[in-house]
Amino acid sequence: MSDRAVQDEVSEAAEAKARGPSVATDEHPIAPYLRMDRIPHIWCPTCGIGTVVKCFATALEETGVNLDKTSIVSGIGCTGRVAGYMKLDAFHTTHGRAIPFATGLKLGRPELLVIVFSGDGDLSGIGGNHFIHAARRNMDLMVILVNNFIYGMTGGQNAPTTPLGARTSTMPYGNFERPFNLPHLAASCGATYVARWTCLHIRRLTKAFKEAIGRKGFRFIEVIAPCSTLYARLNKLGTGFNLMQFYHDNAEIRHGEDPRKVDIGFQEKIICGKFVDEERPTFLEMMDQHYEKTLGDKYVPMPPEGGMIHE
């Protein structure tokens, strides 16, 4: 390097120091996947949902799926707001009904990639019946469930996922109800892809999303995420940062683990990994095959672009 070049570099560095830290003006890499006109979002500082959204958007980008043919459906709750921030055909529906709404979308236009993105209370509490039946049918849906162990939006009430002993605003002396083991529930009902990660595992979570996008049938990914405003505060667990540290120290990856053995106890080990990844015919495939067999040429399947009758 010439003396002149060294001098320039030194003076540039001095100028930069004088200007102070700079703010990147480039667009965020996932901005094209978001409704930037709705940002800032409503989530609390150190909430885990944003991280899950980032991983999901990255998965959309890296798989290169046709975004015009991708729909996202949410129910109600903190995670229920995800659909509202994604720049896709987006449906913010009623509490617990994201899965049946998504079922209608998929059957009404079979070519769509339909993703359900909602919370633990929404999908496994009020929507629990729909969850098990969609898994049973192997309905072509990818279901992302963010589990923060609590009803966040309404103020920290007990959820079907609250670990035994954890305090919530409606179990102020600690929860005494047994929670769901969601991967076990999904797997036992027939889900063909079942994984669990925490939102500390951003690379693995992104990879799971990418994998699930490429699969068919009922795909279920549970993501453990911190709720620092309620769950952490009510249980004196510190902030979201402390919970991330907890995940770091206590998450254990066990691919292929028997889903019956992945219960989550209060501040106990969180078993992560891919538990189920198998291929079985989906609802639509079963329907097509069955009608082709029984009705032969008389069978007229709904076209991939849907049952809309055109002029």
Partner: peptide
């Protein structure tokens, strides 16, 4: 819920 979802596909 499924009926509302399906209708959004034009069906």
């Amino acid at each position: 819920a499924a009926v509302v979802g399906a209708s959004w596909t034009g069906t």
